[in-house]
Design a protein around this nucleic acid. Structure first.
Lengths: 196, 196
DNA sequence: TGAAGCGGAATGATCGTTCATTCCGAAAAT
DNA sequence: ATTTTCGGAATGAACGATCATTCCGCTTCA
């Protein structure tokens, strides 16, 4: 074995393969359209093995959700700088989220399904409740400085993200790409909705 | 049978019972969480009978979708008057849609699930494509009169409805009611997003 | 009495999950 | 150094439950 970087465990990324396969299959066929057998086949692991990495199907889906949400929030904060103006920071957040959805369509589809599925309602928390503190601080600062409308932060969040989701959805279904011009116009329109 | 208006088919409203039961169960447990057996029990009809009214489960769901969408569009156009200003007509459409979602939470949940489900992707059309002509005329008129932003009508539609969906979702999940004050503020914010 | 349609048990497929068994590398023993 | 023992990870056939759908005995009306 010429793997000089072998660190601790022999099998490193079966968990990764399973989660990747799950994202792919679920985006294409839905939660219930994805059986554990098909999932195992796609991941290249035997059925029983999956139960060594996850307690069951539901837990697997919840883990996948947490992972994607974390990545999404991290991507959203790329280049976010509290030294910038509220307006500039808004543009950063908005563009990052939009780009994330466009670059990760399967994640987008998965999150939409997860959000609207009563399948596992009990464990769910709203997207807003699990949002990093940076977001809440951002909205509150904008409110204090009288730049953003004096609305609750989760309302501002809805005004900011709602059109993104609707837009990506519409254009994903219609198959028409979102041009940079349209993207910029919609971002400005969202800013008009938020700003005083 | 004293039903003198029986036109073509013998049984009048078993179809209604089935569709109502389907809406109720699907909103609570999802497409796949709703078995045909449970559906029959809730509707008060035997299993086999449902197959006399619908070719199968998928067709049933599609019919339910078409019915709800039709009702939703009809409700949205209540009080819509082309004699009013663009701004007034926007308020009418926005408020009607919001009220529809609040008054019919199960329909809202169903539509959200349907929209984000790959379950029956092939037959689906975007909400916008099946929107009444009145909507398109409205947006185009607003554009011609330089009151609305010069964006494609489906983009304006996304800007108008996106925050509604996000808001209803957030408050449905959080259990907090949407106050009339908030509703009004969000409507004005959406108007800011659309208007020039 | 004959035809029509209702009803629910039966059906085969598929679901998520389990568990007895195999496998393999390291520790122990010689 | 070589063999034996051993423990946990890997595996997939088997399982009971449940799925959507079918089909035929039975009721119901003409």
């Amino acid at each position: 074995m010429n793997d000089h970087s072998a660190s601790q465990k022999p099998v490193p990324d079966k968990r990764r393969q399973i989660l990747d396969a799950a994202l792919s299959l679920i985006a294409d066929h839905g939660f219930h359209g994805t059986g554990m057998a098909a999932l195992a086949r796609q991941a290249g692991v035997p059925v029983g093995t999956m139960y060594r990495y996850f307690p069951g199907k539901e837990a697997l889906i919840h883990d996948l959700y947490r992972e994607i949400k974390q990545q999404m929030m991290a991507d959203m904060l790329i280049g976010f700088d509290t030294a910038q103006s509220i307006r500039e920071r808004f543009f950063t957040l908005w563009t990052n989220l939009f780009n994330y959805y466009l670059a990760n369509p399967r994640s987008f589809i998965f999150m939409e399904q997860y959000a609207s599925s009563p399948f596992l309602r009990e464990l769910k928390t709203t997207m807003w409740e699990t949002t990093p503190q940076a977001f809440k601080d951002f909205f509150e600062e904008g409110y204090r400085e009288q730049i953003l409308k004096p609305l609750p932060p989760d309302i501002l969040y809805a005004l900011m993200t709602g059109p993104i989701v609707a837009l990506v959805n519409a254009h994903r279904e219609a198959g028409r790409p979102v041009t940079p011009g349209i993207r910029h116009d919609v971002m400005l329109a969202c800013w008009d909705a938020l700003k005083l």
